Amino acid sequence: MIEAEAVRDGASPPARETSPDHARRCRAVWWCLWTWTATWTGLRLPGGGGSWHYFAQGSRLLFGDDRGQGLHLYAAHPDLQIGPIAFLVATPLRLLGATPGRLLALLAMSLTGPLVLYALWRLAPARARRPSRLLTAGLLFLPVWAELVTHAGHLDDVLALLFAVAALHAIRSGHPVAAGLLVAASADAKPWAAAFAPLLLAVGRPGRWRAAAACATGLAAAWLPFLLDDGHTLAAASFTIPTATSSGLRALGLTYPRTPSWDRPAQLALGCLLGALTVIRGRWPAVILLATAARILLDPEVYSYYTGGILLGAVAYDLVISDRRWPWLTTGGLLMLYVARLVAHVAPISLHVLGLLRVGYVLVVVAVTLLPRRLRASPYGTPGPT
Rank of each mutant, 00 (worst) to 15 (best):
T39Q: 05
T41Q: 06
G42K: 10
L43T: 02
L43R: 12
L43Y: 05
R44D: 03
L45Q: 01
L45E: 03
G47I: 08
G47P: 09
G48I: 10
G48M: 07
G48F: 13
G49I: 07
G50I: 14
S51K: 10
S51I: 04
W52Y: 13
Y54R: 15
Q57K: 13
G58H: 02
G58S: 11
S59K: 12
S59W: 12
L62W: 12
G68T: 08
G68R: 07
Q69F: 01
Q69W: 01
G70D: 11
H72A: 15
H72K: 05
H72Y: 11
A75D: 11
A76N: 11
A76Y: 04
A76L: 06
D79G: 15
D79I: 01
D79A: 15
L80T: 06
Q81T: 13
Q81L: 12
G83M: 07
P84I: 04
I85N: 01
I85S: 01
A86V: 09
F87N: 09
L88N: 08
L88Q: 11
A90S: 15
T91D: 14
P92H: 14
P92C: 10
L93C: 12
L93I: 05
L96P: 03
L96C: 11
G97D: 03
G97H: 05
T99L: 15
P100A: 10
P100S: 13
G101M: 11
R102F: 09
R102S: 06
R102E: 07
L103G: 04
A105Y: 00
L106I: 08
L107A: 15
M109Y: 05
M109F: 13
S110L: 05
S110M: 04
T112V: 04
P114Q: 09
P114Y: 07
P114A: 10
L117A: 01
A119E: 08
R122H: 14
L123E: 03
A126P: 03
R129I: 08
R130I: 00
P131R: 00
R133M: 06
R133P: 04
R133N: 00
L134Y: 03
L135N: 00
L135I: 04
A137V: 07
A137C: 14
A137P: 04
A137K: 02
G138T: 02
G138I: 07
L140W: 06
L140S: 02
F141T: 01
P143Q: 10
P143I: 12
W145N: 04
L148P: 01
L148K: 06
L148N: 07
V149N: 04
H151R: 12
A152N: 08
